[in-house]
């Protein structure tokens, strides 16, 4: 593990964190914590192993710690300040804002699996080892996550609160 290889992983770590956490600064803080822990546990990394799954696993564990701890309240920012990268495209059938809000409504465990499969294009087996769960659990969370997201976007499920202050 050296600086260059870590740097090369940064864009993907940031993308996943952004999609998982939603808010840019909080997501980057998670990435920063991940890098710090990676250096602290550098000795545990097997040089022949892949760096990426190891980093994602570290990030997952940190995120779990974060969710267990009480946190400072986020200030809900209204006035339609876009917090997610928005690429305006009229032909998109799913609107970016709707998708972001729908994604935020998924339970974290479903969101994590869905994002690792979708954004990272990880194999189910790799998702399982990254998150420390069984492959069967990956599949059921993925299936529920996708269905849940589809329902929210189709307006089938009651959507509780669009802006959730967590």
């Amino acid at each position: 593990m050296d600086r260059q290889t870590l740097l090369a992983e940064l864009p993907r770590l940031r993308r996943y964190a952004r999609a998982l956490v939603g808010e840019r600064c909080a997501a980057d803080d998670l990435v920063q914590d991940t890098l710090e822990r990676a250096w602290a546990r550098f000795g545990q990394w097997r040089a022949d192993g892949d760096l990426r799954p190891w980093l994602f696993a570290i990030m997952h564990n940190l995120r779990m710690d974060q969710l267990r701890k009480p946190r400072l309240d986020l200030v809900p920012i209204d006035d339609d300040v876009p917090e997610l990268p928005v690429r305006a495209n009229q032909s998109d059938r799913i609107e970016v804002a709707d998708l972001a809000a729908a994604l935020a409504q998924l339970p974290e465990e479903q969101r994590a699996v869905l994002l690792l499969v979708t954004l990272e294009e990880m194999r189910y087996a790799d998702v399982a080892s990254t998150l420390g769960i069984a492959v069967g659990t990956v599949m059921s969370r993925l299936s529920r996550g996708r269905e849940h997201l589809r329902q929210i976007l189709a307006g089938e499920a009651p959507s509780p609160q669009l802006r959730v202050v967590r």
Partner: peptide, 18 residues
């Protein structure tokens, strides 16, 4: 849609802290 929405993050300049 998910890939499209988050693809721009890959091109963002990296924050100095990171």
């Amino acid at each position: 849609a998910l890939r499209r929405m988050f693809a721009p993050v890959l091109d963002e300049p990296l924050p100095e802290a990171l």
